[in-house]
């Protein structure tokens, strides 16, 4: 137990939490923007997976930032595919989302085989590049807390910093700009905006594209920082955890950040615990993030039931 506490309060554990939280946070923000526009994006998982592979393959031939942008564009493209099927062809959004998930699972393995020349499991024979970590060791010059600052702030992925910035950007967009107001109105009561003469579908379409782009960034972080390289189904349910995090975060960007950190922390625990408790099967420990998701969602819906008012007809 002492070892566990010592591990949890170490700077290395903090770095791990940030690392595991970042793809979750990016995907959660993507889920949030789609959810607020009234289109539940269940395809986050599949979009992340496609972006993971896109990032790995592109980074073999191009600099890391080109690979990140390629992952983002792949995500945005899949978002626009969803928008096309859902908004233009009026297909059910959940079915479209699952179609993309199933497609992603199969297509990535197929594309991986082509890219590696026959390997169906991972991209170990491709020399892919990582996203660089931001080196802030100059903070060591700060008197007193310099060492602490370096240990906690230095060494995070560039995308982690970007994700943190995006929390603020998204908050400002949603609550301080008129487009944000319109986006939130579309999710809650689309006919209000239609009656005001603004197309609800166009807004929904763009938010699905943005949602896909954010999931694309999440994929890039996953395959270019958390692991360098692609393994089949490497997203391992993170897209679905992100959907839970949207709700747990009360459909607010800051809530999304806290929820992603919470899930990221349990994810990190499942990484460090097998070394400390070798008598607990590793499989059980790896279940922790999923069990936490289920428990959190049950508690969340219970709370919603208690706080919703009687007078909404």
């Amino acid at each position: 137990m002492i070892e566990l506490l010592a591990t949890v309060f170490s700077a290395a554990f903090f770095l791990t939490v940030i690392r595991t939280s970042t793809p979750l946070l990016l995907a959660t923000l993507g889920g949030l923007i789609a959810d607020l526009s009234g289109a539940l994006n269940v395809a986050l998982e599949g979009i992340m997976l496609v972006s993971c592979l896109t990032a790995v393959v592109v980074s073999v031939y191009a600099p890391w930032y080109v690979a990140v942008i390629a992952a983002l564009l792949a995500g945005a493209f899949l978002g626009s595919v969803m928008a096309f099927f859902h908004l233009r062809l009026k297909a059910d959004i959940v079915l479209v989302g699952f179609a993309i998930n199933i497609f992603a699972s199969g297509a990535t393995v197929f594309a991986l085989t082509l890219a590696t020349g026959g390997d169906k499991g991972s991209s170990t024979n491709l020399i892919s590049k990582p996203v660089p970590a931001l080196d802030l060791s100059f903070l060591g010059m700060v008197p007193g807390v310099g060492g602490l600052l370096v240990r906690t702030l230095s060494g995070h992925s560039v995308l982690s910093w970007l994700a943190g910035l995006l929390v603020f950007v998204l908050w400002y967009f949603l609550y301080r700009t008129s487009w944000g107001l319109q986006l939130r109105s579309v999710g809650e009561h689309p006919s209000a905006l239609e009656a005001a003469g603004v197309s609800a579908n166009a807004l929904r379409g763009w938010s699905l594209v943005a949602s896909g782009a954010l999931a694309g960034l999440a994929g890039a972080q996953l395959s270019m920082f958390n692991y360098v390289g692609f393994t089949r189904d490497m997203t391992a349910g993170r897209g679905f955890i992100a959907l839970g995090a949207v709700l747990l975060g009360a459909r607010h960007p800051v809530g999304a950040l806290l929820a992603a950190l919470l899930f990221g922390m349990f994810d990190a625990l499942s990484v460090v615990m097998p070394g400390l408790f070798n008598w607990i099967p590793a499989e059980l420990i790896r279940m922790i993030p999923f069990v936490v998701t289920i428990v959190a969602l049950i508690l969340f819906s219970y709370r919603m039931k208690l706080t919703s008012t009687t007078f909404d007809h």
Binding site: T177, Q182, L193
Partner: peptide, 12 residues
Amino acid sequence: VLGSEPRSGIRF
């Protein structure tokens, strides 16, 4: 004001 919001810059 929804749909015809007064703006200053990009801010509502």
